[in-house]
Structures are given as C-alpha cells and as structure tokens.
C-alpha cells in the first residue's frame, strides 16, 4: 500500500521545499551524513509531521547539542544501539494515541544511524524493529567506519581499508574482512521495502527510494552510502565524484527490494575497474604500492562476485 503525493512535483519543486534540517549544525564540511538526512527528509510530503530518530554518532552529537536542535520536526535520540527499538516505541505510541483521538496530525517515523549504530551495536534493535514491522523507516548513513570516535573499523568497512583499529603497517594491509551486505540482510527480513542508494546526479534515485520507504506501510530500510572526507581521506569537494565511481564500479549498486521483488535500478554501460573508486581515497593508498596489485585483484574479485549475485537476484 503506497500513498501517492498530492501533486506531481518537479525537481525544482523538491529543491524549493523548506529544509527540515536547519543549517548551523556542527557536521564537517562535505559530510555525507547530513546530505543523506536532507535528501531523505525532502521526500516527506508537506503537511505530514514527522518524528526523527537518531542513534548516537556524529550526526546526533553535531545536530542536537543542547540547547540547539537542527531539526524542525520532533526528534529523539536515546542511545547508540537502540534507534530501532526507540522509534518502534514512538510509532506504537502514535498508533494508540491516534486511535484514542488524542492526535489529529499524520506522523511519519524516520530514524538515522551510522553504520556503527546500524550494522554493529544497533543491529539487534534494528532487526527486532523491522521484524515487528513498525511503520517506520530506518536510514543507515553508511560511511564505513566509526567516524565519530575517530575512524575505527565497523562491519561496514570494506576490506583493506586503513582505519585506526585496522592500521596499515609492516604486518597489516588494513581490514582483513569483507563488509557485511546489510541491505541483503534486511531484505531477508521480508519487510515491505529495502532500498540501497547514494548521491547520484540530481538525487532522483535517493529521493524516490526515500519517498517509497516513508510512504510504504510497514517497516522500511534505506542504506545510503554517505562518504566521510575525514575517514576516507578525500577532498570534500569530490564527494559526488566518489559516489558516482562507487556506483559505476558496481562497488555500491543501486537496487531496491520492494515487497520481496529485487529490482536493479541502474546498470553501468561499462563497469569501471575498482581502482577508479579506490584511488580517490587515502584509506586505500597502500593498495597502490608496487607489490600490492594482488590486493586490488582480490578486491575486484569480491566486487564482481557480489555484482553477479545481485544481477542473479534481480533477474528472477
């Protein structure tokens, strides 16, 4: 069941909507986290109220530092590992209070967590909230490490990334393990909607997925690659280029799983080699040292394997 927007909106209409995340927060210049938040909240229909949730992380400590909040909507932060359960409680309260006639407005429930709060410490809370099918959206802004505490590896960190807990050294090539495929894991929860996106061209992909996630009844999950200039070590101005390369190399495919149906949203005409994505980022610098060619080959092989797997799932 999907509500449809009241009128056909153009790209300009969307961009002209009032921001629901006010400027003046303390996130870094060029941070992907806030770009994700603004893009997702832009998909809320005007007139709809929302409660925004947040796991502890960069976003939380920088956007709601007492006595200032950057959110125009009601907002709740509880702890690092429980954004899913917390929003489940809010949504349940809404259902009963609405039924009792104590609330007139329509509310939507959207919670944001970084990959640390989502893939790792908040994973159980997320899984439980999704399985109970609360009518809410959980958005992971995935920057592939614990950036708030200073770039420690998470289960979202790609293999061979240099982080402060997987430092590259004489005996180490960086992180030893592949990243967890969280969107697939959430799809395996058989929830109504899962989408994976990032910042591409005019944000149409992310906008459409956010709108679907928000206006599909039941639990929805969005995984948004949201680069971090500090952790990935790139020039802040290059964020759009990096996101594009993530998609064109098939490192970060754009897909959705709508009521069980896997849909590939974009297939590059010519799949670019993974080096194009890696070379832009300081965290992979060591991979380009002579003698480390095999590491890039392994990385490429894993990207290929996952891409083939995705194509298979989407072809059924």
């Amino acid at each position: 069941m999907t509500d449809s927007p009241a009128k056909k909106m153009t790209f300009k209409d969307y961009m002209d909507k009032p921001e629901r995340l006010a400027p003046g927060h303390r996130m870094c210049a060029g941070c992907g986290g806030t770009i994700a938040v603004r893009a997702v909240l832009r998909a809320l229909h005007e007139g709809d109220q929302a409660v925004i949730g947040n796991a502890t992380g960069c976003l939380e400590v920088s956007s709601f530092m007492y006595p200032f909040t950057a959110y125009t909507d009601s907002y709740i932060h509880n702890a690092f590992e429980n954004a899913g359960a917390t929003m489940g409680g809010v949504e349940t309260a809404y259902n009963i209070l609405k039924r009792k006639g104590k609330i007139k407005d329509n509310y939507k429930f959207i919670t944001f967590g970084g990959d640390g709060g989502t893939y790792d410490i908040g994973f159980q809370s997320l899984s439980g909230a999704m399985e109970r099918n609360h009518d809410m959206v959980y958005v992971c802004y995935d920057n592939g490490a614990y950036m708030n505490t200073g770039i420690q590896r998470s289960s979202a960190t790609p293999m061979y990334a240099d982080t402060t807990t997987t430092p590259v050294g004489k005996e180490s090539d960086g992180k030893m393990q592949n990243r967890k495929d969280l969107a697939a894991i959430l799809a395996a929860h058989d929830i109504p909607y899962v989408g994976q996106s990032t910042f591409i061209s005019n944000f149409n992909d992310l906008h459409k997925k956010a709108e679907k996630a928000i206006y599909t009844k039941g639990a929805a999950f969005l995984n948004v690659m949201a680069p971090c200039p500090r952790g990935w070590r790139y020039e802040a101005s290059e964020i759009m280029e990096i996101c594009k390369l993530g998609v064109e190399t098939c490192y970060w495919p754009l897909f959705e799983v709508d009521h069980g149906q896997w849909i590939l949203n974009y297939e590059p005409k010519k799949k670019l080699p993974i080096e194009d994505f890696l070379i832009k980022q300081g965290r992979f610098k060591h991979l380009f040292k002579p003698g480390n060619e095999h590491l890039i080959e392994e990385f490429q092989a894993e990207v290929d394997r996952r891409w083939e797997d995705l194509l298979f799932r989407c072809s059924r």
Binding site: V51, G53, I76, N78, A79, E81, N82, G84, A85, T86, M87, G88, G89, V90, T92, A93, Y94, I96, L97, K102, Q124, S125, S127, G128, A129, E131, R132
Partner: peptide, 19 residues
C-alpha cells in the same frame, strides 16, 4: 520486543512520544 534492552528503549520512545 526482542530483548529487555529494546523493552526499555521502546518504553522510553513511547513515553517520550506522550504515551
């Protein structure tokens, strides 16, 4: 809920929401 941790988390969410 799937744990007591989530029980208290959801209770906090519901109470904060006005329930």
């Amino acid at each position: 809920v799937e744990s007591e941790h989530s029980a208290m988390s959801a209770t906090i969410g519901a109470s904060a929401a006005g329930a």
